[in-house]
């Protein structure tokens, strides 16, 4: 027992010394941890602003699509001009959804960087645009699904009381939709956060790229990559916990 424990202690001690040295090499020497700090900063900036852009785009696209689907007949009967405008807008939205969801996000990012915004040097802005436009397509479908899942009777009840379509949406439908789509929306934000890890393709120093740079300098893969994974994981866990709190608060008003 005693001998075994002595052996273990010596081994563990050696392992710990080794760990300390690698840690020192990868993160402390030459202030290499700053690659991760700055990378995380860029990752969070890109994620937050891309998510905001995506939600804004998603709301617009989902509104156009559902307004057209729900009011096609009444617009055709009562307002021909509006019907034609909405039909065109609806088609534009459909094309946007098809193109964005039909091509890889890395390709979209490279097109944005090397073609559309080739003259810009603000690579973070480019990433925000590319990831935001990409996320918008998925968010739009989340919102659209949420709106379509509300029983048509809710719309009819609102309209029969005398509310316009938009006021019916605002007072009656949207409050129910938000509660329903929150989990899916969180999912999309988590997916977005992780998708931004391909930003390194266009020489943006995000978290993943930061870890990769350290690996290139120190020739040790384990420590920087595991650390990068750990940081992503912590951000996602914190995000999930936050949304869970909001969801519980919304549920209180149910019954």
């Amino acid at each position: 027992m005693g001998a075994w424990f002595e052996g273990f202690k010596a081994n563990a001690g050696a392992w710990f010394e080794d760990f300390k040295a690698t840690f020192q090499l990868n993160f402390i020497d030459d202030d290499r941890y700053m690659y991760l700090v700055n990378g995380l900063k860029n990752t969070l900036i890109i994620t937050v602003f891309a998510a905001l852009l995506g939600i804004a785009l998603g709301i617009i696209v989902a509104s156009v699509r559902t307004t057209f689907d729900k009011n096609e007949e009444s617009m055709r009967m009562r307002n021909k001009g509006l019907y034609i405008v909405m039909k065109i807008a609806n088609t534009v939205c459909k094309v946007y959804l098809t193109v964005i969801r039909g091509t890889p996000v890395v390709v979209q990012l490279m097109i944005m960087y090397f073609i559309i915004m080739a003259s810009s040097t603000n690579s973070v802005l480019i990433a925000v645009l590319a990831f935001g436009i990409n996320s918008g397509a998925y968010v739009a479908e989340i919102f659209r699904g949420g709106i379509m899942s509300i029983d048509n009777g809710q719309f009819e009840a609102g309209r029969s009381l005398g509310f316009s379509y938009f006021r019916t949406m605002y007072h009656i439908v949207v409050p129910q939709v938000i509660k329903n789509v929150l989990p899916a929306l969180l999912n999309e934000c988590i997916a977005l956060l992780k998708e931004t890890s391909v930003a390194g393709y266009v020489s943006i120093q995000d978290l993943t790229k930061g870890g990769d740079i350290i690996r290139g300098r120190t020739y040790s893969a384990f420590m920087p990559l595991i650390m990068v994974a750990l940081i992503y994981l912590i951000v996602v866990v914190v995000l999930t916990w936050l949304v869970g709190k909001v969801e519980r608060r919304l549920k209180v008003s149910e019954r």
Partner: peptide
């Protein structure tokens, strides 16, 4: 007044 009431659940 509808067959399925259509009260606002929220």
């Amino acid at each position: 007044v509808f067959q399925h009431f259509n009260l606002f659940p929220h």
